[in-house]
Design a protein around this nucleic acid. Structure first.
Length: 399
RNA sequence: GGUGAGAUAGUCAAGUGGCCAACGACGGCGGACUGUAAAUCCGCUCCCUACGGGUUCAGAGGUUCGACUCCUCUUCUCACCA
């Protein structure tokens, strides 16, 4: 029982530090019913969650299944600094009202996966603000610059001649201090968070809390391209708020290789079930497309509903397998007569008339399923279905 | 505080007076092929109803018939020294 729980907890993880502690906590739960805390921090600047974020949420849900109490931390204070991880941009200051709003939308999205009964949402400004200058100073004495520079991305930036702001040094310290305050037993995060996560251990020791949190790191989920991490700014993401059709279509567009990754990190199926599917594809008894469809359906159903997922699947096959027109698309109404390039731009199918012309030249534009050859074409009044490429559609009524 | 180097399109990165809307790579988009996959091949990739015009190479001035390229100042970044 404990072993099985441990296996599901370890599933897909990139690295675990202090595995024995996790084992002990599980043991205490199974034998004495004692619960424990698992902390995970989130940035209030990005309330639009995508599947990349849900990797962590799934892991948290697994922990909940095995007795954990989740400390869902919203880093409203630390957001003012900006996590040095990845790109360095100066963050805009968030107004308290915005943070509250973002936190609300977090809850809405997060509780599709997490059990609210076993979750506490906390904000770190609550205890960092009272720290004051002297508390902050004390915090900085627990660490030194040389060790700070050991951090991978600091080192890279330092050697690569990219600036590092002093405030960025504070970020890991504060994140670690959160663990001190919350007295967390385990903290989970992405592999890119390793340094910050370890800081929690360091500070729990420095502040003599009598424990050092175990750390579980999840790999960063690759985006739709399969190479770069899933992120909104790269546009390779599947948002949890995406419409069922989009969600389904996006999952289906990933590569076969990536599909297994998604299964491991996002599916609710057990490790054993996935092994069976894998074997099926390997010996040819299961078509990879079918397997991918199942995954797409599972994910779509999670964030919408079973029915919506089934509809999305039907719609998808209709549009793409039989190359028919989708039932759902944006409507526009414009005055005619209208130049085709302008129409495409107005319907948001193209960013500029220049781009529209190029695409017409390349045979990418269709009106009512018929390829447009004349880039000077004028649209008279009537109703049209405009299409660019394979997936961009719009319905246009010309007056 | 001193000295030196640098800032080019989504990113990286050529170009050091006209041949530059600016090589190339990546990304992105489109086409072929498919399972709307991947891989591969081909085309496109600042804007504008366009065999032409407009606005670009950190910002502001200047030199010149002409500047991304030369000069001055400003802003930002980095390295070395303190």
């Amino acid at each position: 029982m404990i072993q099985e729980a441990l296996q599901e907890i370890q599933r897909g993880s990139a690295e675990i530090i202090d595995n024995e502690r996790i084992e002990k906590l599980l043991k205490a739960y199974f034998e004495e019913g004692k619960s424990y805390t698992v902390k995970a921090g989130f940035d209030p600047t990005a309330p639009d969650l995508h599947l990349g974020h849900t990797v962590l949420l799934h892991k948290l849900a697994t922990f909940q299944k095995y007795g954990a109490y989740i400390q869902f931390l919203i880093g409203d204070f630390t957001a003012q600094i900006g996590d040095p991880t990845g790109k360095s941009e100066t963050r805009k200051k968030l107004l308290p009202a915005d943070i509250a709003k973002n936190a609300e939308s977090y809850k809405e999205q997060v509780f599709k996966i997490l059990d609210p009964e076993k979750t506490e949402v906390v904000f770190n400004s609550e205890w960092i603000n009272p720290l004051g200058a002297s508390g902050m100073l004390e915090l900085t004495t627990t660490f030194n610059v040389a060790r700070m520079l050991e951090r991978d991305d600091f080192e890279k930036r330092y050697k690569g001649g990219i600036s590092i702001s002093i405030s960025e040094f504070i970020y890991p310290l504060l994140q670690g201090y959160d663990s001190v305050h919350l007295n967390s037993d385990i903290e989970i995060g992405g592999t890119d968070q390793k340094f910050n996560l370890l800081m929690g251990r360091h500070l729990q020791r420095a502040y003599e809390t009598g424990k050092e949190q175990a750390v579980l790191m999840m790999p960063i989920l690759e985006g739709l391209d399969g190479i770069q991490k899933m992120s909104k700014s790269l546009g390779n993401y599947i948002g949890v708020e995406d419409a069922p059709n989009d969600m389904f279509g996006k999952v289906l567009s990933i590569s076969d290789e990536l599909m297994w990754r998604y299964y491991e990190l996002l599916s609710a199926k057990s490790i054993k079930e996935i092994e069976v599917i894998k074997a099926g594809v390997a010996d040819g008894s299961l078509h990879p497309k079918k397997v991918k469809e199942d995954l797409a359906q599972e994910i779509t159903a999670r964030f919408h509903s079973q029915e919506a997922a089934a509809e999305a699947k039907a719609e998808f096959n209709n549009v793409h397998a039989k190359s028919q027109i989708p039932t759902d698309m944006d409507d526009f109404e414009l005055d005619g007569p209208l130049w085709i390039a302008k129409a495409l731009q107005e319907c948001k199918l193209e960013p500029s008339t220049s781009q529209a012309r190029r695409d017409i030249k390349q045979g990418a534009v269709k009106i009512d399923q018929v390829k447009v050859l004349d880039e000077q074409l004028q649209l008279e009044s009537g109703a049209y279905v405009l299409q660019v490429g394979k997936r961009k559609f719009a319905r246009l009524k010309v007056k």
